[in-house]
Design a protein around this nucleic acid. Structure first.
Length: 769
RNA sequence: UGGGGAAUCGUCUAACGGCAGGACACAGGAUUCUGAUUCCUGUUAUCUAGGUUCGAAUCCUAGUUCCCCAACCA
């Protein structure tokens, strides 16, 4: 069962804040797939977020089939989704829901929307609607049907439900805003007529609600508190909120109410290198038979990964490793491979399997032969129980790759005259190469040296082997990445060698009973699991992942990556340097803006960059002029200018608006700073209060107790900070100079921003020195 | 072109305005009957330019790059 992982991310922070503030008593999330395809590793990330967060925060997570489009949905997918979520290790208990169960309720709520004048039946064709929608830059135009009366709409919509109309004749639309800069808000369709039978409701309905209308209401019906989805739905959030805002939040069920007000949060979906994640493309791969089915082990579907030998634990560890954020990122598939190796290492018994056999005749065996070897299933350092019996005879198979007639430097394996260790079975020396008529190698003759300690040092390497007499003849399917390129875009980029079927591989006899799904480490190769095609006597294995290989590893690519990155950095620096020529200057402005900027610099000594900001933003400039008018001059004027351009501008970033204070207050504030009554930090805080509730700076400072501390008051604070952080003190004294900022920070916190940081820094330095 | 998002080691991801941290990858070393595992050690990053500040990855201004939005799909 799922063990709660940390799942520390920004979404968790938001939910915890909502819990903390009492907005919600407990968290309720949902995972809402449409049952029109199989789940893949990208869904696994979403499942880990939705279910994982609910588990960690002691809430609950619903599984909801978002089945509002009868075209491709199917019960088979519903079953597969449930199986996959469960396999991943999550449990929705009794909270399995279907959007299709809400059809009646959704219909009643649509009626409410019509009654309050927020929805209308539109009879434009699909194409006309597209034309009316406008473009990204131009507003849309309203439909002629937008003015239909409530009664007309009610009648038309009930007749739509009754089946009086053909597909496409009418749609129900939300009456939002055809001129909205957000395209999603330009009167989106919320119901359409569809004659396709639904896999659950059959022909009971011929109108179906659309996603933006259905999803938010389904969330509300179920009491979802946080509706977590992927980034591409950010644009839909306004609509999500718009729909819900048309209803009153009330525990009393009615067409005009919803029981709770959920909030939508978005995170970046998973992209994996060398992998394709789009449902559509995956479907195409299956339909065009480029792969064997939804569970082809090369596919990133959970069904495929399960068949390939991936474990739920590894996939969950992967999801935890990659984190949750809003960056569009491309995760290296190597991270997934690390997770599965890490997991399988601890759970897969070791066996020996020769993929490409080379027969070896062993001389020097005792006359009577030797007993089967009993060897551990796991290396000692794992301290796991289990052993197996491994027969050996005078004929064995070794890997063709483990023999080289002309070995390269650093070769640890067999070569003419060389000694290697047979895993668990003593040393051999290669004495003769056997060839066929054409001269190619058909086998070797080696001398078995037994476990002679004197020869130990001669063996540089250990190779695996299988007894020829008792070897199992098995099939091994060796998978490689499905695509050739890091970010595949077309099916033409398929890797032609993504599957190699190896037959007549030689597996040690102890694995004869391997059941489907059983996972092994084929020593020195990788992790393999028995495929669903595997039968007793006809075993078939899938390569899950190779072992890490420090010998043949090709790191040329990584070196190239690093070099490219360095070049890219240099390029950026150059571009930046070129940009420096365009640093803000009054001379770069035109007309009144230029005149104003120049005046601010000349008359008040305002820095050029700040003057430019004030000149370009009318409200800021006016406020500055008022402040000067109220008596701020010289140093005070400059302080004001900086405060306005750097602090106030942030409060006003959504555009100009009325402020509850003016130049008089700002002049007073600047005066407090220039007189040394308050620090710059306190001034920023006071300005923030001024913006939100107005008032007189003098009063605000008094209420805050914000007068600057005298130097004599600093001493005890410094002592306290140093006493509280002995480790940091010794690290600083050991040379970690950047810690000075750490101490200053602590001190500023302790003084609530009232300390003179410069003086404090000097004091700290002398005390630490 | 309007709107909405995002920019931190090669990759993924952290850091109330105060120590740029972790993981993967890579390199070196130790251990090893798997060129594996394990264990040390190390290299490498705040998109650019200006500004504010004692102090900026974080705040301000301007710019650059990438992603999403014009289904009666979800």
């Amino acid at each position: 069962m799922y063990a709660a992982a940390p799942m520390q991310n920004f979404i968790r922070d938001i939910i915890e804040a909502d819990l903390q503030s009492g907005k919600h008593a407990s968290v309720v999330t949902r995972f809402p797939p449409e049952p029109n395809g199989h789940l893949h590793i990208g869904h696994a990330k979403a499942i880990c977020v939705d279910f994982g967060l609910a588990t960690v925060l002691a809430g609950r997570c619903h599984l909801r089939m978002d089945d509002t489009n009868p075209d491709a949905e199917d019960m088979e997918y519903v079953a597969a989704i449930q199986r996959d979520v469960r396999w991943l290790g999550f449990d929705w208990a009794e909270h399995l829901f279907f959007a299709s169960d809400y059809y009646e309720q959704l219909y009643e709520h649509a009626l409410h929307l019509i009654r309050i004048g927020k929805a209308y039946v539109c009879s434009l064709t699909e194409e006309e609607m597209r034309e009316h929608r406008g473009s990204l830059t131009e507003p849309g135009t309203e439909s002629v049907h937008r003015g239909r009366t409530v009664d007309e709409n009610l009648e038309l919509f009930t007749r739509m439900r009754k089946g009086d109309f053909a597909e496409g004749e009418h749609v129900l639309r939300a009456k939002c805003d055809m001129a909205s800069p957000n395209m999603k808000l330009r009167d989106p369709a919320i119901y359409r007529i569809k004659r396709t039978p639904h896999y659950r409701t059959g022909n009971a309905w011929c109108i179906y609600p659309l996603y933006d209308y259905t999803h938010c209401l389904s969330d509300a019906f179920e009491g979802i508190t946080h509706s977590i989805c992927t980034l591409e739905f950010e644009n839909n959030r306004d609509l999500y909120d718009w729909v819900l805002n048309q209803f009153e939040v009330s525990a009393e069920p009615s067409p005009g109410t919803i029981p709770c007000r959920p909030r939508q949060l978005e995170f970046a979906r998973l992209n994996l290198s060398y992998t394709m994640m789009s449902k559509r493309k995956l479907l195409q791969l299956v339909q065009e038979k480029r792969v064997s089915g939804w569970d082809d082990p090369r596919l990133p579907t959970l069904a495929g990964m399960r068949r390939r030998g991936y474990t739920p634990e590894a996939i969950r560890a992967f999801c935890e490793m990659i984190g949750v954020a809003k960056n569009n990122s491309l995760v290296d598939v190597g991270k997934l491979e690390f997770c599965i190796r890490d997991d399988l290492n601890r759970r897969s018994p070791r066996v020996m399997c020769v993929l490409a056999p080379l027969e070896v005749q062993l001389d020097g065996f005792p006359e009577a032969g030797i007993e089967p070897l009993v060897v551990p299933s796991f290396p000692a350092e794992l301290s796991l129980p289990g052993s197996r019996s491994v027969p050996i005879g005078s004929r064995i198979f070794i890997e063709q790759e483990d023999f080289s007639e002309t070995p390269p430097p650093e070769w640890h394996r067999l070569s003419p005259g060389a000694v290697v260790r047979l895993r668990h079975a003593g040393l051999i020396r290669c004495e003769e190469i056997l060839r066929d008529g054409t001269g190619s190698v058909t086998g070797l003759r080696c001398r078995w040296l037994g476990h002679d300690e004197a020869n130990q040092a001669k063996a540089k390497g250990t190779i695996h082997w299988v007894c020829a007499e008792t070897a199992l003849d098995v099939e091994v399917r060796v998978y490689d990445r499905l695509f050739d390129v890091e970010v595949p875009e077309s099916l033409e980029q398929l890797n032609p060698t993504s599957l190699a079927v190896l037959t007549h591989c030689k597996l040690e006899a102890s694995a004869a009973g391997a059941e489907c799904g059983a996972s092994f480490q084929f020593e020195r190769h990788g992790y393999y699991c028995a495929d669903t095609d595997s039968r007793p006597g006809r075993l078939v294995f899938n390569r899950t992942v190779t072992l890490r290989d420090g010998w043949t590893r090709d790191d040329a690519k990584d070196r190239a990556d690093t070099r490219e990155a360095a070049l890219a950095r240099q390029e950026k620096q150059r571009a930046g340097a070129a940009m420096a020529a365009r640093a803000p200057s009054a001379a770069g402005l035109e007309g009144v803006e230029r005149t104003r900027a120049e005046a601010y610099v000349a008359a008040h000594g305002v820095s050029e960059a700040v003057a430019v900001v004030l000149a370009q933003h009318r409200q800021l400039g006016e406020l500055f002029e008022q402040t000067v008018g109220a008596g701020a001059s010289g140093k005070a004027a400059q302080v004001t200018a900086n405060l306005i351009a750097n602090e106030l501008a942030g409060h006003l970033s959504d555009g100009p608006r009325a402020l509850p204070f003016g130049g008089v207050e700002l002049a007073e504030l600047a005066g407090l700073v220039t007189q040394g009554t308050i620090t710059h930090g306190v001034a920023k805080e006071v300005l923030g209060q001024l913006v939100t509730r107005g008032g007189r700076p003098g009063d605000l400072v008094a209420a805050l107790g914000g007068e600057a501390l005298s130097v004599s008051e600093l001493g005890p604070l410094v002592a306290a900070v140093l006493a509280a952080h002995p480790d940091e003190v010794s690290r600083y004294r050991a040379g970690k100079n950047t810690l000075l900022g750490f101490f200053v920070g602590k001190l500023m916190r302790a003084s609530r921003g009232k300390a003179d940081a410069k003086a404090a820094e000097d004091l700290l330095r002398s005390r630490l020195g």
